[in-house]
Design a protein around this nucleic acid. Structure first.
Lengths: 153, 153
DNA sequence: CTAAATGCAAACGATTTGCAGCCCC
DNA sequence: GGGGCTGCAAATCGTTTGCATTTAG
């Protein structure tokens, strides 16, 4: 018989959990790391990743991807859809009414078991759509990338 | 005035294009690389990535993500949905009837401009659902991972 | 001829992981 | 006080990129 694992409550877990609660901005692990660091300056990025993994495993939060390679985390568990702005990159929670229900019957008939479905809508958000500010993807902030190649060949 | 770029037709482009045509298995760049290598053994993975980028840019194929970090490529341009099997990882093209249309009106009213939307359905596919074979994610094939850490510390 | 595309290998960015020490239960 | 968790740094994975060279047009 295998000894059951008893998860522990650590300050890191507590701070990370509360940092995401009610956050509808769909932060990345790095976003969360920077935020949590203000409270626990010695926390490591590895711990943030491990803790997020655990929260996902325990069903507290969702891990989502929006056509990028970086995972985003979402504390909202109720069914909702996402709007991804092609201009500024922001992801917004939205709710699209399905006038009647979508018809999964044919899929079920074909032998599929359906566990969940997600709807992602792409376009231009209210803010970017407003004339005036041309506004372009704000992601990728930080220092002006001094990182260049260092080889001399 | 800037000199226009005239793309060229190379054997690599031709072989990669035909390799993806009609392929509904949503192959990754690596999958395509292995396939193309049988015809052009000296092709590099870099060229495969660059060529796929070009095909996406030119609108010949689509690049998709399904909750993994690896991009998948899809030559089907018509509107269709995707079913992702949580057990074997396969991605299948499906079509879910929207009984009536989905109601984007409220989003448009709120100032969003809608360019596209995608529906992903997760669950267990016909094959995995059939009793008998317990079947588990076949992805990550190849040699038994001899790659271990090499540090001695 | 000449600019675009290739092969190669190094670089990158996001995430994971081995390990030794720390500290929650 | 023992096993889970942390910080650290190195490793891994998928993808990109600089450069010298080849090649399509």
């Amino acid at each position: 018989m295998e000894r059951a694992i008893r998860p522990r409550t650590t300050p890191q877990l507590t701070v990370i959990s509360t940092a995401i609660q009610g956050d509808h901005s769909h932060p990345s692990a790095e976003d969360i790391y920077l935020r949590v660091r203000k409270v626990l300056p010695r926390i490591s990025l590895g711990t943030v990743y491990r803790t997020l993994q655990r929260l996902v495993r325990e069903g507290t939060i969702q891990m989502l991807f929006f056509g990028e390679r970086t995972a985003r985390y979402d504390p909202t568990l109720e069914e909702h859809d996402h709007f991804i702005c092609q201009q500024c990159g922001r992801v917004e929670d939205v709710r699209v009414e399905r006038e009647q229900q979508m018809d999964f019957a044919s899929l079920v008939r074909a032998g599929f078991t359906i566990a969940a479905h997600s709807l992602a809508i792409r376009g231009v958000c209210q803010l970017c759509g407003r004339p005036g500010e041309p506004r372009r993807r704000p992601r990728r902030t930080g220092p002006p990338v001094p990182t260049k190649r260092e080889r001399t060949h």
